[in-house]
Simulated assay, not measured.
Amino acid sequence: MTQPPDRVLEPSPVPSGARPGQRIVPLFLLLGLGHLALVWRLGAWTPASEATRAAALLTFGAALALGSLGLSRGYPHDRLGACNAVTQLRAALACCLVLPILDPGLMAALRLDWAVVALALLTLALDGLDGWLARRSGLASSFGARFDMEVDAVFALLLALLVLRLDKAGPWVLLLGLARYGFVLAQAALPWLRGPLPERLSRKAVCVLQIAVLILLLAPPVAPPLSTLLAAVATLALIWSFARDIRWLAARR
């Protein structure tokens, strides 16, 4: 769901010339190479095929390229900061989910089912750390908020795809991963949907519920009909959250 950043600061004073973000892109990419190696190493630890590992690497590479573009265009500070490094790490960990999505048999091999759950939980746990680090270091920015939001969206989509591949719920569970992208497409047709939204704790709670339920569905003991019921509850909560924001924007167009 589109969420306003916690706090957007004014750009830090920097020398004239290239934008601050443009000068930080090489560091961002260098850090990305380290995370790329992490994705490859985690893939090599499993019996996944080279093609499957390459797909995970390409997914993270695409995220890295888009992140670099956003960084060069709109990052106002002269330091990358640990906050953006953590967000990039979250993107790398999320992209590792491509491995079991393309080869669900990995979940049963070497008891990787619980390892995938642990990986997803770690990715979720890091979600609040990057924002806290940004505020603490004075590096909060609209880029950081957008980067964090897009990583959340990709993470939710990959989780939903994996839940579907494991037959924990029907195809409708993809709504939990595609809602954000559907909202973006709707904004292209209805510009008034691009309006700023007020801060709402309920929206953040639904986002956490969305990810938490998807992770819970990956646990081996959670199977239909329980998994179907949990997915339905999370989907209804997400639909309610989007509908509430859409109605708020419609009243002010």
Rank of each mutant, 00 (worst) to 15 (best):
L249M: 01
V25D: 03
R23M: 09
V25W: 06
G138C: 11
L89Q: 01
L58F: 07
A82S: 03
I215T: 15
A186P: 12
G182M: 03
Q3K: 10
I101V: 13
L175T: 15
L102P: 04
L129A: 13
A65M: 13
P198N: 08
A115N: 12
A205W: 05
Y75R: 10
W45R: 05
L119K: 01
L229T: 12
L57P: 08
R252V: 02
A109F: 04
R252K: 12
S141Q: 01
E50T: 14
E10A: 13
L161H: 10
L112Y: 09
L129E: 14
T46N: 03
D78A: 00
L112G: 06
A82R: 06
V206R: 08
L97Y: 01
L38W: 03
I211L: 03
G74L: 06
A63W: 07
L102G: 04
P26F: 05
N84Q: 04
L175Q: 07
A251L: 06
I24V: 03
L214I: 10
L133P: 03
Q210F: 13
R252L: 05
L133D: 08
V86A: 14
A188E: 11
V98N: 04
F155W: 02
L218A: 13
L42N: 02
R7M: 09
L58V: 15
H35I: 11
V14M: 07
W192P: 06
H35A: 08
S72C: 08
G32D: 12
L164F: 10
R111Y: 00
A232I: 08
L175Y: 14
R23F: 03
K204H: 05
A237F: 12
A109C: 08
L190G: 05
V151H: 05
P20S: 01
I24Q: 04
A91N: 15
G195Y: 00
A85K: 08
T235G: 07
L121W: 13
